[in-house]
Nucleic acid binder design. Structure first.
Length: 468
RNA sequence: GUCCCCAUCGUCUAGCCAGGUCCAGGACACCGGCCUUUCACGCCGGCGACAGGGGUUCAAAUCCCCUUGGGGACGCCA
């Protein structure tokens, strides 16, 4: 069997969104699974809406997700001569013709057809006129008026369209640019695509494109249409459902492997398995297990996967990801190992890097700020003697470790006849400013004697004079 | 309006193609419990679905038809 070739062909009219990312992922996975090649093509024939900034954003997103391409990126805007060559070849062979209808006439035609209960399509009035080029003229494909066009969709199975449903689509715009359908077909033919995996919203384009392949005498690739992603209200996913862009998820503190894992499982399955390494994905992916129905994007599940991958990652990696967020708040430490130690205690407690960075603040802040409620409840005058004792005992401690600290607290409990919980919470508030944190002995060991003592001192001041 | 596609717990899904082992399995979320110095993590348990109606068959979540519901497409956008 010859090497398969897949592609991802976004138009640079905005950032790479979740749906596009999944389409790219499926193409990438198919190519990697079958040992084929994955091509990236930028469809920028719409000069009005395409921007370089969008192209950069898309490439950045692809890279962040780890979807590397073997060829490209190719730009349609630089291949105009090629499209023109094919288009004129079709005119010469009688498979296409010039059309002089104005946009106004076409709109009128559509409205008329709609009123009569039909499909709003071009009526083919210029088909047999034998017109030539003219200002404002376009070239249309001369499609068959009878018969059916069908294909065996890799995901949906057999799909058939009546050719009578299709009108003569424009292949060359009046501005001299090819239309999407034409450019795509010429590209997919000349780039040797064997598999075209794209969004469900292209199903209606497929019969038209197949007709173009046939008119060009080119082999028709296999098509696979992946279902759309919907919002919670089952409507097509859009901005009002929340973040759409891949990089927004990056900024919200998601790990790329979490997004990839989530996206691939939205529409594809492999028995009951939920978590996949990239290697497993490449090994196990198959279009056979891609579902046919649309799926609702569920951020809760994405969050769960993200939490999972945060727990699984090395503290060093997570620390490196959180460091910039902390730095932005003016929190930094000369010793990267210190942050890594701190982060390690937070990994089972955070669902996003953003969340984790917030939780890590107390490790770095020079001055603890108390949550007012927490301070009021736990930093009470009656606890001052206990905290004073604790500080004294800590000063005399030889080794400042989890084990020795635990021993200190046991002694403290006995001396004051208090349960651990009674002592732990005030100390926790003193050290972190909050009532919830990683294990007390853990954080004390990491903070070190100096920070712990100064924070206890500050707490004592507060306890003895809560009004101030 | 016309055409195309889809239909299992709230959500993602397994099962469907090769009907019986499915009074339907897993995961997220939710609820309860355990663990515990707090919060998480983890572990255990619970709630919860074959859209409806006809067929075919000894037997249907699985096959066929209809209805309903949902989505998509009907551009000189891609």
């Amino acid at each position: 069997m010859t090497e398969i070739r897949t592609r991802f062909a976004p138009s640079p009219t905005g950032y790479l969104h979740i749906g596009g990312a999944r389409t790219a992922l499926f193409n990438w996975l198919l190519a990697r699974n079958l040992g084929g090649r994955f091509i990236l093509r930028i469809e920028d024939t719409d000069a009005q809406r395409s921007t370089d900034e969008s192209t950069r954003a898309i490439l950045e997103s692809m890279e962040w997700l780890g979807l590397d391409w073997d060829e490209g990126p190719f730009f349609q805007s630089r291949r105009n001569d090629l499209y023109l060559e094919y288009i004129h070849k079709m005119v010469d062979s009688g498979r296409a013709y010039w059309c002089h209808c104005t946009p106004e006439e076409l709109t009128a035609q559509r409205e008329k057809a709609l009123k009569e209960g039909g499909k709003p399509k071009y009526d083919g009035r210029c088909r047999e006129k034998g017109l030539g080029p003219a200002p404002g003229a376009v070239i249309r494909f001369k499609g068959p008026e009878t018969g059916t066009t069908h294909w065996d969709d890799l995901i949906k199975g057999p799909v058939a369209f009546d050719n009578g449903e299709l009108d003569d689509l424009v292949i060359l715009k009046s501005d001299g640019q090819p239309t999407y359908n034409m450019a795509v077909v010429v590209d997919d033919v000349t780039m040797g695509m064997t598999h075209v995996i794209r969004g469900d919203d292209h199903v209606n384009n497929t019969p038209r494109q197949i007709l173009l392949y046939e008119a060009l005498g080119a082999p028709v690739p296999k098509f696979g249409h992946v279902p759309m992603i919907l919002g919670g209200d089952k409507k097509r996913l859009s901005k009002r459902h929340g973040a759409m862009s891949v990089m927004a998820y990056h900024e919200m503190g998601f790990l790329p492997e979490a997004l990839v894992n989530y996206l691939v499982r939205l529409g594809w399955s492999c028995g009951d398995q939920e978590i996949f390494t990239r290697e497993e994905l490449v090994e196990k992916f198959s279009l056979d297990n891609v579902g046919r129905s649309a799926g609702v994007f569920d951020q809760e599940k994405l969050l769960w996967l993200n939490a999972h991958y945060i727990k699984e990652s090395s503290p060093e990696r997570i620390a490196a990801l959180a460091a910039p967020l902390l730095r932005a708040k003016g929190l930094e430490d000369d010793d990267p190992a210190y942050l890594a130690k701190a982060v390690e205690t937070l990994q089972p407690r955070a669902k996003t890097i953003v969340e984790l960075a917030e939780q890590a603040e107390f490790f770095l802040t020079p001055e603890i700020e108390y949550d007012p409620k927490a301070a009021q409840k736990f930093l009470t005058p009656d606890m001052a003697p206990v905290v004073t004792d604790l500080a004294d005992m800590l000063k005399q401690l030889e080794a400042f470790s989890h084990e020795t600290l635990e021993k200190v607290f046991v002694d403290l409990m006995e001396k004051h006849e208090l349960k651990l919980g009674k002592i732990a919470q005030p100390v926790r508030v003193a050290l972190t400013g909050r009532t919830a944190s990683p294990g007390l002995f853990e954080i004390m060991e990491i903070l070190g004697r100096g920070r712990v003592l100064s924070r206890l001192d500050k707490a004592l001041v507060f306890m003895n004079n809560p009004a101030a």
